[in-house]
Nucleic acid binder design. Structure first.
Lengths: 224, 224
DNA sequence: GGCGTTAACTTAACGTTGATAAGTTATCTC
DNA sequence: GAGATAACTTATCAACGTTAAGTTAACGCC
């Protein structure tokens, strides 16, 4: 019919996948989507743009994801996975419960500031659909393969750490869940502010992070 | 003055406005938009739905607002004006500097939870075009009538309060700006979390707000 | 009372968006 | 070879924000 020269627009040399290798395309889509989401935001990163960058037609994305939201969810899990890895490393190497929590906060804040775009994508959420916004917390944790459960996993680690702290004999001003929520909210407030308003003349970053950490940990520890 | 005032709130939706009274329609649009934004969220509240509720065609909205965003911004200023009012009332009725700050935090948190959409747009959101994005902080405050300046005004009040607290002889652990940032970040963390993850089984709201307030204020006050 | 101006609208349409239906092509197994 | 079917495309949908261009009605003025 036609010359088989694939002289299309900006289409890369990606050819049709062989039979058993569709998952490869799935990963390509995720990579392209991640880049575009971070570059332009959720709304501006249209499925057509994503498909274009992959070098494939737009409906092809629906072979691998139920809808645009599902792409977002998959990316969320990817990001959460990296954080959870770091936290696991802390749990393995640090035994003192209080020290663990400090290290958790440190790792959490550092992770956020080192990957501001991903943090924004996952933890802050913006104009994104309802289902995606719930990613962080609402879902049941019993099935870790379920999309969008990573946030809950991260948070539950903090709760566990605080329970262990209490079990070790340290008196807390609130129940462990409440303490965890307050700790997370404080650190998240710092990270979110620094990420979302990078041009504001904030005080020194380390001062703010360390300051909030001190404030929050002092605040939940019952004063003897 | 006015012969008939029949169109105050339950307006005859389909009637064309008389010559000098276009601003009346503007207010109707704002009211309808506010209701719809709160009922269904920003995205789901389409221009056509808003126009429908007003009883007017969709393009008619563009006679009064540059675009959909401008409607939201107008609503933001409207509601932030109320927060600033509350803060002003606190400043007038409460003389003790520390008490002022507590009341500020209380009013701020309550306001955020009462107006989650406006709060999200101004203090959290970022997916919105550049002009709206800076709304929170970086904006010049010299023109208070400028759309979207409410956030910066609110924050500057807190800085002032903390400077006054220090001037009153109370020793702080950090400079007033840093203290203001930490206070704001803590409370913002609570409000943002409650707004963005409304379905998570958080601890009692009042406990969290009051708890963060205690934590943060204790944290910035130099321990004697 | 008629006329011109113009504020206050309407209808029609544009370009995109996310998503679906239905058809096509290439690779596998037999 | 002949099916079967994974991988993909083209054509199309309804809904979105927004614009262009035309219409209606209220006023001042002669």
């Amino acid at each position: 019919m036609e010359p088989e020269l694939a002289a299309s627009s900006t289409a890369p040399a990606t050819s049709r996948k062989k039979r058993g290798e569709g998952y490869t395309r799935r990963d390509e889509i995720l990579l392209a989507a991640k880049t575009l989401f971070l570059e332009e935001g959720y709304d501006a990163a249209t499925i057509r743009k994503i498909a274009d960058r992959v070098g494939v037609s737009a409906p092809a994305l629906y072979l691998y994801f139920q809808d645009k939201e599902a792409i977002m969810l998959a990316l969320c899990d990817q990001t959460f996975g990296r954080l959870i890895e770091r936290i696991s490393r802390i749990e393995k190497t640090v035994s003192d419960p209080l020290e663990r929590i400090c290290r958790f906060g440190d790792a959490y804040a550092r992770f956020g500031l080192e990957h501001p775009d991903e943090y924004r994508l996952v933890f802050i959420g913006h104009n994104i659909p309802e289902a995606v916004r719930k990613v962080g917390h609402r879902m049941p944790i019993d099935d870790p393969t379920r999309p969008g459960v990573g946030g809950a996993l991260v948070f539950s680690r903090l709760v566990t750490m605080l329970s262990q702290l209490e079990a070790s004999g340290v008196k807390l001003n609130y129940p462990p869940d409440t303490c965890a929520e307050l700790c997370w909210m404080g650190i998240h407030g710092v990270v979110a502010a620094l990420i979302m308003k990078p041009d504001f003349p904030w005080s020194n970053r380390e001062t703010l992070i360390q300051g909030m950490q001190d404030i929050v940990i002092n605040g939940i520890l019952s004063r003897a």
